[in-house]
């Protein structure tokens, strides 16, 4: 990205960095994404291991927040049951825009091992909230978590903020 190259050599050109405001805002948002403290089942243990010193999730700029009002994205780690699904929807609606969702593990992607006879399991969290990134695995390795985070950062850095409607209409026409 042009902005980051400029930041590496700050004194070339007299200490002035030129870039678009959109790039600046997207850079700020993607590199300091704060997540909601939300662990459901086994994938949450891998998540805790990833926060620890060996894999160190915090170097992506993420900090755990306990309240959904202060969080930027939610990582749904673990099986979503029907009893819990209503609470997840309430939590998602309490978060302020812009917000993102990462679905971790096969249980929240598609129901996981409980897809066939589970009478109390919701077959995928994308049936109730919109998901941005899916991370497969049962449970996924911490390296897969990091790849998912990098994908989310890429997605945010390409987002349109100004003239959003025009850009989306142009994309639809091209497709």
């Amino acid at each position: 990205m042009g902005l980051l190259n400029r930041l590496d050599n700050p004194y070339e050109g007299g200490g002035i960095v030129l870039g678009t405001v959109e790039d600046l805002l997207n850079w700020g948002r993607s590199k300091s994404n704060w997540y909601l403290h939300f662990g459901l089942a086994c994938c949450a243990i891998e998540f805790m291991a990833m926060n620890a010193s060996h894999f160190d999730f915090m170097r992506f700029g993420t900090i755990p927040r306990t309240s959904p009002r202060q969080a930027d994205f939610i990582m749904v780690t673990g099986t979503v049951t029907l009893k819990m699904a209503e609470r997840i929807k309430i939590l998602y609606e309490q978060m302020a825009e812009p917000k993102y969702v990462i679905s971790v593990g096969s249980c929240s992607n598609c129901g996981g091992p409980y897809w066939e006879h589970g009478y109390h399991v919701l077959k995928g969290v994308d049936k109730i909230i919109p998901v941005d990134v899916y991370i497969p695995g049962c449970p996924p390795r911490p390296e897969a978590f990091e790849e998912g985070m990098i994908q989310l950062q890429k997605k945010i850095s390409q987002q349109a903020i100004f003239n959003k409607r025009k850009k989306l209409a142009a994309e639809d026409k091209n497709q």
Partner: peptide, 8 residues
């Protein structure tokens, strides 16, 4: 269905 969510 349970509360509008598909069960199976």
């Amino acid at each position: 269905f349970y509360h509008g969510m598909e069960v199976s």
